[in-house]
Amino acid sequence: METKRTDKDILYKGIKTMGLTLVLMFLGPTLLYVAFSNEEKPLYIPLLIIGIFICGLAIYFAFKGLKTIMDSMFNKK
């Protein structure tokens, strides 16, 4: 009979992805705040685009990290 164990290497990879997600979750809204508080400056549009892109990346990496952690717990490779 096989015992179910967490694959620690895959779990570590998922935790690293969630760490990146945490950084992006703070960076994206910060850039959006800076962009919206300086609407008359020439860098308004580039900061807005970069901020929205980083927020999207944060969402993507959050789902990817959670999926990786779940795969490590339920032995799916």
Score class of each variant (00 low, 15 high):
Lys8Asn: 14
Ile52Gly: 07
Lys16Cys: 08
Tyr44Asp: 07
Phe36Pro: 02
Asn38Cys: 00
Gly51Asp: 03
Leu47Gly: 11
Leu57Val: 14
Leu47Glu: 10
Tyr60Met: 07
Ser72Glu: 07
Tyr44Ser: 07
Phe63Asn: 08
Phe61Glu: 01
Thr3Trp: 07
Met73Glu: 07
Tyr12Lys: 13
Gly65Arg: 01
Leu47Met: 15
Glu39Tyr: 06
Leu20Phe: 08
Leu11His: 05
Met70His: 11
Leu48Lys: 11
Leu11Cys: 02
Leu47Cys: 11
Lys4Ser: 10
Gly14Glu: 09
Ile50Ala: 10
Lys77Asp: 13
Asp71Cys: 06
Lys13Leu: 13
Thr30Ile: 01
Ile10Arg: 12
Ala62His: 12
Leu66Tyr: 02
Leu22Lys: 07
Thr6Leu: 07
Pro46Asp: 07
Tyr12Trp: 04
Leu24Trp: 02
Pro46Thr: 00
Met1Phe: 14
Ile49Ala: 09
Glu39Leu: 11
Met18Gln: 06
Ala62Ser: 14
Gly14Thr: 08
Glu39Arg: 14
Leu27Arg: 05
Gly51Lys: 05
Tyr44Gln: 13
Leu27Met: 09
Gly28Trp: 04
Leu20Trp: 06
Leu57Ile: 13
Pro46Ala: 08
Leu22Val: 15
Leu27Ile: 14
Lys41His: 04
Leu32Gly: 13
Thr3Tyr: 11
Met73Trp: 08
Leu57Met: 15
Ile59His: 02
Pro29Gln: 08
Phe53Cys: 01
Pro29Ile: 04
Leu31Gly: 12
Ile52Leu: 13
Tyr12Cys: 07
Lys13Phe: 06
Phe36Met: 14
Pro42Val: 14
Gly14Phe: 04
Phe26Gly: 09
Leu27Asn: 03
Glu40Gln: 12
Phe53Trp: 00
Ser72Gln: 10
Lys8Met: 15
Leu27Thr: 15
Leu48Glu: 12
Pro29Ser: 10
Leu27Tyr: 10
Leu24Tyr: 06
Gly14Pro: 09
Glu2Leu: 15
Lys41Asn: 05
Glu2Tyr: 14
Leu47Val: 01
Ser37Cys: 02
Phe74Leu: 04
Ile54Tyr: 09
Phe53Ser: 00
Lys4Glu: 11
Ile15Cys: 01
Lys76Tyr: 09
Ile10Ser: 06
Phe26Pro: 00
Ile59Met: 08
Met25Gly: 07
Leu20Val: 14
Gly56Tyr: 11
Asp71Tyr: 12
Arg5Cys: 09
Asn38Trp: 00
